[in-house]
Nucleic acid binder design. Structure first.
Lengths: 153, 153
DNA sequence: TTGGATGCAAAGATTTTGCAGTTTT
DNA sequence: AAAACTGCAAAATCTTTGCATCCAA
């Protein structure tokens, strides 16, 4: 039952405040990528006074500390998630915004290849991949002539 | 000498304006990922009246049309690039922000695995991977005790 | 006690929208 | 002529910052 990650926040020169812990717990309990709005929603009951700047500052802190990951899933804002021992990743459908979780082991071949070839050590907790999900792929192939230019304005 | 991509913008219900073409040419000539500021800089001499909303609208249009790709490289704003026949990808160093280009073929194994296992068709032109570059990795290992908690505020 | 963290308010930055007028088709 | 697009201005978001106060160590 090791709550070791708490201890990793007890670093000389830094302080483990209730707010900081609350933000960590929020994304940990969420168990998946969450937006600022979702994090605030989660914090409201127990910590109604916790402010937006504080959440942002603590998220940045946690990302630097390696306990959280920040990702852009294309929704117009960043999403954050707790970095557990078991990483997982995201396949994001560009059409319907469905997110498929991808187990970490799936990326091992890529990881090794990057290290061998480029000496690059990827931070795979920051990993999101965009594309088309099976369901939308199927829909698209049914409509044989699909011009795909969105309207603007 | 095929300027075929221009023709792909001549779609019924859409119009090929000088501005739209200019934005396309800007990212095409840039040859790499560029920010809004960089795009505007490039457009200024030839198209001094081109406005920010127009650039944004056309970039969104081009992304939908499959001629441009939007990526978050962690710099606080999106970067855009022309989607040529030869895709390439980015290894972004989280420490020094260096960007290493990765040839498309490098991702074929992953691509195939995703398709086989999940039926997911990745849009690999949207690909960016964060991590630590060889140079920073070396620096880090030289300083054996490196607590890596950034300060905030 | 000390200086790191919070809360508040305000600002900064990126990106979007409404609308009248212009331009492509 | 019709409707898509532009330019302008303003707004909507997301995110950061300054500063006085508070609190963990």
């Amino acid at each position: 039952m090791g709550h070791d990650w708490k201890e990793s926040l007890r670093v000389p020169g830094h302080r483990l405040t209730p707010q900081r812990l609350a933000v960590l717990e929020a994304i940990r309990e969420a168990g998946c990528h969450c937006t600022l709005a979702e994090i605030q929603e989660r914090l409201k009951p127990q910590h109604p006074t916790l402010t937006l700047p504080t959440v942002y500052r603590n998220l940045r802190y946690l990302v630097n500390a390696g306990l959280a990951a920040q990702t852009d899933l294309g929704g117009g804002c960043h999403v954050y998630e707790f970095v557990a021992d078991k990483h997982h990743h995201h396949l994001v459908c560009l059409k319907c915004r469905t997110v498929i979780d991808l187990p970490d082991s799936f990326l091992d071949p890529l990881r090794n290849a990057l290290r061998d070839r480029y000496g690059f050590t990827p931070c795979m907790e920051h990993f999101a991949l965009f594309g088309v999900c099976p369901s939308c792929e199927k829909k698209a192939s049914e409509r044989s002539s699909d011009v795909c230019l969105g309207s603007d304005g």
